[in-house]
Nucleic acid binder design. Structure first.
Lengths: 230, 230
DNA sequence: GTTATAAAGTGTAAAAAATACAATTAAATA
DNA sequence: TATTTAATTGTATTTTTTACACTTTATAAC
């Protein structure tokens, strides 16, 4: 039987690490933990934890994220397994990296604070332990690829958002500036972006119309060959 | 210290499984193992093996591939970790899937035979054990994404290949038929495709010119903003 | 040695997509 | 009432993608 055969094999600790993206005031940020004890005191790390006996990696990552932010059903996707022998100087630990997209305002501020976690601007990250910088790099690369063909960016925005907000998000993700007329032109070809009657007046006197992403309409459009592309 | 903390954690067997793509006679194929003993006798599986104490997942996958085919320095990329609790009905085993692209002719036929491995047409795969079908699906999806913007398809061809061969490869990867004039037009914009003086006459009386992919020129072109795209 | 065969090789026009670019509108505040 | 600031709108140009058919080359058959 399998069991007998497997018994000779080495077993490993397997952790998950989460690259949690947020977006506010036109900037992408990551939710990071500040170590307040040795070793590596003062250094920063990605939120993570060990996979438990009865968990898949995906469930473990969702647990870590839920514990930290109070959020469930968050957009999350696995990046890959990081397994270099010395990636953790303490002991051999493999780690599966996940990236998550959340709306900062939805997270539980107190819970985040209690875990000694802080939102740090993606363009100005502190030094991170282990291979966490590599994980972040990998996550950003993946985010850029995914966000261009799938409507995942909306997970970083409130339920209702304005066109200028959406544009600022894409400008932040790709680090470019986009012509607003061309940007709106693309949006017009997406029947799953629903224009609401209400305006958001927090960032201008005139106010900008609020929109929402209609998941059902998106699925319908996809079947008709209309794809998301930004 | 870390060690003390880690000791409470569960450890896991971690395997690698390889989706090894080949291309011959206009068709993609996978190198699969046929089980000639129980359990699951007669069923097919992806080539794989356990990660050993002093190996990274990448090294383990390269070892598995080298043992099976005699090939080193093969194009290989990690897909992700598969970790569903019951994915292996025998015991809890996590598995990292890798996909590899090899030139079938380069592999050691006897070695492959000895491991009870066979090339099976991708369009006519046998039933596979565990979550291996999911891994294959994931690999094909990744291959399609990667092959469209990176010159990785050449790993499936001989060192020197013809334009019709290259076109047939891309037609096989994407399951479409491509206009040969438009295909050649795109190739003309790629200075790293070197036309040789020799012809391959195995598939036509007239013969088709052989080309090779020049990696150095590719890197140079990339710096100049010329990207691979097919 | 002429002819038949089969795959390799070639160019252009039309359509679609991406890009560049500037004035007007709306609402609050001075 | 005038000023301010961000939101909103359309068109012309360029680039890219797509559609499409005949000629060339070398071998094999006659």
């Amino acid at each position: 039987m399998y069991q007998t055969f497997y018994r000779d094999q080495t077993q490993f600790y397997v952790a998950v690490d989460c690259i949690i993206f947020g977006f506010s005031e036109g900037r992408l940020s990551l939710l990071l933990l500040k170590r307040n004890m040795e070793p590596a005191k003062g250094q920063w790390s990605l939120p993570g934890g060990f996979i438990e006996a009865q968990e898949s990696a995906e469930v473990a990552a969702a647990r870590v994220l839920s514990t930290l932010t109070g959020l469930d059903e968050v957009y999350m996707d696995q990046l890959m397994l990081f397994s270099k022998i010395d990636r953790d100087p303490g002991e051999r630990v493999l780690s599966v990296a996940f990236y998550a997209l959340i709306n900062v305002a939805d997270s539980n501020r107190e819970q985040v604070r209690l875990h000694n976690a802080y939102w740090r601007d993606l363009d100005d990250l502190p030094a991170l332990i282990f291979d966490h910088p590599e994980m972040v790099h990998s996550a950003l690369k993946r985010l850029r690829i995914e966000a261009s063909t799938k409507p995942i960016g909306f997970n970083l925005l409130p339920e209702r958002f304005t066109v200028p907000q959406l544009q600022a998000l894409y400008e932040a993700i790709y680090g470019i500036s986009i012509d607003k007329r061309n940007f709106r032109k693309k949006l017009q070809s997406m029947p799953f972006l629903v224009k609401l009657d209400e305006k958001d007046k927090t960032s201008s006197k005139r106010g900008a119309y609020l929109y929402s992403f209609d998941k059902e309409r998106y699925e319908k459009a996809k079947l008709e060959g209309i794809h998301f592309a930004l």
